[in-house]
Every structure is written in C-alpha cells, then in structure tokens.
C-alpha cells in the first residue's frame, strides 16, 4: 500500500469517493532526474573505476601499492553510488555480486584452486568468494605481492566486477531512454524513498551498531573494510551518497528536499535539512572505535542517523504522502 492518503480515503469513505489525483508527472520528473543526475553518472564513474582496477591487475600484480590505491578508489566510488540501491542495482541484485559481505576466505582459497579462466568459469564461483570484499582480502591479508595463482584469480574477480558495473551503467542509460509510465513512476518513487531509508538503516545498524553489539568487551568490533583500513572512509562515503540525495548538490540534481519544497512542504524540507546537518556533525566527529568501551562517537552517529530515520518514516513520509519504512508499512 504505497500511497497513504489515497488508501486512507478509500478505507474511510469507500470506493465512491475519489482520492486526489496522484502527481504522476512530478514522480516521473523526479525519477528521470534521479537517473540523469545520479544513477547514470555514478554508474559510469564506478564502471570507469572498476575497469581501471581490472587494468591495473592485468598490468602488474606485484605492485600492490598501486593495486590497493585503485581498489580504494573503486570502493569509494561504489559506496557513494550504491548508498541507495534502487533501479538496476535492485533488479540485478548487483550488490551481491559486487559487494558480498562478509567475504569467506575459505571460499576464496577454494576458488583460487579452481582457477577460473574466463567469465563463464567465474559465474560458477559463489558470491562469497567474489566482488570487492574478496579483492580486499586478496590485497591486504597475505603476502606483500600476489603469487601467480592468486594474481590470476584476482584478475578474474576484478573483471567480473567491471563487467557487472558496465551492465549496470547500460541498464540505467536504457531506463532513462525508455522513461516511466504513471504506475512505474509511482513505484519508482516509492522504491527510491524506501531504499534511501534502508540506506540509513544499513549505515547505523549493519555498519556501526550491530558490530559494536556483537563485539566482545575490550575486543575490536569487526567492522566492514577493516582489513584495508577503509571502514571510516566507507561510512562517510555512504553518508555522502545519502545526504546528497536528501539535500542535493547540483543545481538541477534531484533531492528529497527539493521535491518537498516543490510540493509546498517547506517545513518538512527545513526539518529534513536540520536532521541532515545533525548527522553531518556526528559523522564529522566520528572516529574508528578502538573497542566497544570507546565508541561514544559511533553511538552519537547511530543516534543522529536513527533520529533522521525516525523523521523520514514519520513527518517526512506524511508530507510526501508515501509510506516510508525500512520496517514496512503497518505490519507484517
């Protein structure tokens, strides 16, 4: 039940009373801008970075400094782009192929022994041994230089990421060229808002709060990207993606704030800005927690993100006339 107001009117007054017409044109415009200014350029940027990663691996597996630097660039591009996993990212389930976590070292070792020689052979390798986390494991966990077998597998793994990135870019370009009818635009808007909300949940719960809760006292929490030392940068990258789609940075770029203002919801837009700025402050002060006892900044970031999510699912959802909830609509 995507459209709260229409649904409530239907329920309370019966089918004889017509709901206000839905602003399909506004939905379509938002979704078009979202693709034009976000998904198409971000997917192109990520495709370029992942191609470079594959190229560096093809050139010289011994130069782990260059490999690591390019991996960091690639993953930074991915984190911002995939902060809201809508459209082709969702339809293709690409995050499983590109960013499966936690990676499984035993599955990677087995995959190296299988020595896949091409894309078809890589298709037979399971997600836990592929993607950017598997490459992180290969580049940071072992010897300073990759042996021949590991190098060949890393080349195939990077090529698989680059191939998926290319398919994603093409899918977003095709979607933009094809356009959206009314129903598709409404659903795409609903999907985007809910996945933006899911992005907040991923950041505060999966990335920060859950690892802290699972960690033993006085032991470091098992944060993602810990091997490469990219955890903190990764969290900030995800937040940058989420905040950009909340407030926008480009003159023509889409943002939830701009949509609210265009809909006459100035107060909700102002409140959104205020909540985002509170998260900005918390994320700027955030440092990698040494252990659970020294995680005050992380807990502050969790609180600020939860407050933003609560606002999004309540006041903002009401203003947008959409049900927004990572935790569903009314129930289960």
């Amino acid at each position: 039940m995507r459209r709260l107001v229409a649904c409530l009117i239907l329920l309370l007054a019966g089918p004889a009373v017509h709901a206000d017409p839905l602003p399909y044109a506004a939905y379509a415009a938002f979704v078009r801008e979202l693709h034009q200014h976000w998904y198409v350029p971000r997917s192109a940027e990520f495709a370029g970075q992942s191609r470079r990663l594959a190229a560096v691996l093809q050139g010289d597996c011994a130069d782990t400094t260059a490999l690591r630097a390019q991996w960091l660039q690639t993953v930074a591009s991915w984190e911002r782009y995939s902060a809201v996993r809508g459209g082709a990212l969702l339809a293709r389930r690409s995050p499983r192929e590109i960013d499966f976590m936690p990676t499984r070292p035993e599955a990677i070792a087995k995959a190296i022994r299988r020595a896949p020689a091409d894309a078809a052979a890589m298709d037979q390798i399971g997600s836990p041994a592929k993607g950017l986390p598997a490459l992180e494991w290969l580049l940071w966990s072992g010897a300073p230089t990759l042996d021949a077998a590991t190098c060949r597998y890393a080349q195939q793994a990077a090529a698989a990421v680059a191939a998926e990135a290319q398919l994603l870019q093409r899918a977003y370009e095709l979607a933009l060229a094809r356009g959206w009818d009314d129903g598709e635009a409404e659903y795409a808007m609903y999907e985007f808002l809910n996945l933006w909300d899911a992005g907040l949940q991923k950041l505060w719960w999966e990335e920060l709060d859950r690892p802290l809760r699972k960690a033993a006292p006085n032991r470091p929490a098992l944060f993602s990207r810990a091997l490469s030392g990219h955890s903190l940068a990764g969290w900030r990258g995800q937040w940058q993606g989420l905040r950009q789609l909340a407030l926008g940075v480009e003159a023509d770029g889409p943002s939830i704030s701009a949509y609210l203002r265009a809909s006459g919801q100035q107060q909700a837009a102002d409140r959104l800005r205020q909540k985002v700025i509170e998260v900005d402050r918390a994320m700027a002060a955030l440092e990698l927690p040494a252990n659970v006892a020294q995680a005050a900044q992380a807990r502050a970031a969790v609180s600020a993100l939860k407050a933003l999510q609560q606002f999004a699912e309540g006041e903002m959802a009401t203003a947008l006339h959409f049900v927004i909830s990572f935790f569903d609509e009314d129930g289960d």
């Binding site: 969702l90 999907e191 809910n194 949940q201």
Partner: peptide
C-alpha cells in the same frame, strides 16, 4: 524479498 533492500516486496 531481499534482506538488503529491507522490506520492499518484490
């Protein structure tokens, strides 16, 4: 449903 997309019904 995909867990990574929350509760979005597919």
């Amino acid at each position: 449903m995909q867990a990574e997309t929350g509760r979005l019904k597919l």
